[in-house]
Design a protein around this nucleic acid. Structure first.
Ligand code: MN
Ligand code: MN
Ligand code: ZN
Ligand code: ZN
Lengths: 143, 143
DNA sequence: AACTTAATTGGAATGATTCCAAAAATCAAT
DNA sequence: ATTGATTTTTGGAATCATTCCAATTAAGTT
């Protein structure tokens, strides 16, 4: 598992802009997220990261995730009271939480719908972030 | 601070249906929520509840809130990683979290918009709950 | 009242996340 | 390349909202 050249450039770019250093651990955590885009928790990222970087610590995974989120490369996804999950999908999207499998699915949201949602706010209220999530049952997979 | 007759009936009704007993503490916690509908945390509910029922425990407040939520009389509102808040507004509504004051405001959401949101889901996906929340700055209050 | 079952209580336990201070790594300037 | 200044990483301790527990109390029933 390796970081694609374009992703690597995006990372360097974003880190530089935030005056943060590029490190082996940050690259690796980012690569882990891009490799399997299934909204892992910090613990899951830690487990995956360790398979190829056995010395990375959980604290560092938390630090890297926090850095990636603050750089805008990764979204932190909070579902109910569960541990945070992390998502490298930068398009505007909502999340569907499947109660049976526990999986989280990305749902694209067209811009005009976002605009419609913003119109619900009373005059003067400015939303800098909108979070939309669904909870329910996904169709049984025809495995 | 007293529970209105209609609220009291709704409570008895909902508890009975769930085969739960009506208790002084449950009535009181419900009354606290209805009295000031500002999305308090469990700690805040505890503080308010104690002013007129000094012997109630924090564990009981958590228990009562959980009961009220499971009866459908109260909504548990989770914002980012903050402590849960509790809301007795049963209409379909979203929440606006004001970054300056920390306050949470109810935003009504028309049914047709909800329908539009549900249409975003791929075929076969059934949402039994939709959560919509805004984070941003409310207009400075003209106090 | 006596009995059965559920709810309340204070305190301990849990668990995701954050904090800390020492060691290691990065970057800039020689 | 070496030095020095600044970040980052690291393991472990601390935090804190929430849950769990076992004993006491209250509710509802006969
Ligand atoms: Mn889940
Ligand atoms: Mn807040
Ligand atoms: Zn996502
Ligand atoms: Zn509300």
């Amino acid at each position: 598992m390796k970081l694609a050249t374009t992703a690597k450039r995006a990372l360097g770019e974003a880190l530089g802009q935030a005056k943060q250093r590029s490190t082996r651990q940050r690259e690796h955590v980012f690569a882990v997220l891009l490799d399997k885009r299934d909204h892992p928790t910090a613990d899951e990222v830690y487990a995956r990261a360790r398979t190829t970087m056995p010395t990375i610590s959980l604290a560092t995974v938390y630090n890297c995730l926090e850095t990636l989120v603050s750089c805008g490369l990764v979204r932190q996804v909070n579902i109910e009271r569960e541990p945070s999950r992390y998502c490298p999908n930068l398009r505007e999207h909502a999340h569907f939480h499947d109660l049976r499998s526990g999986r989280v699915l990305d749902i694209d949201v067209p811009t005009d719908l976002i605009t419609g949602l913003k119109r619900l706010l009373p005059a003067g209220y400015e939303a800098e972030h909108i979070e939309l999530s669904f909870r329910g049952k996904a169709p049984t997979s025809k495995a």
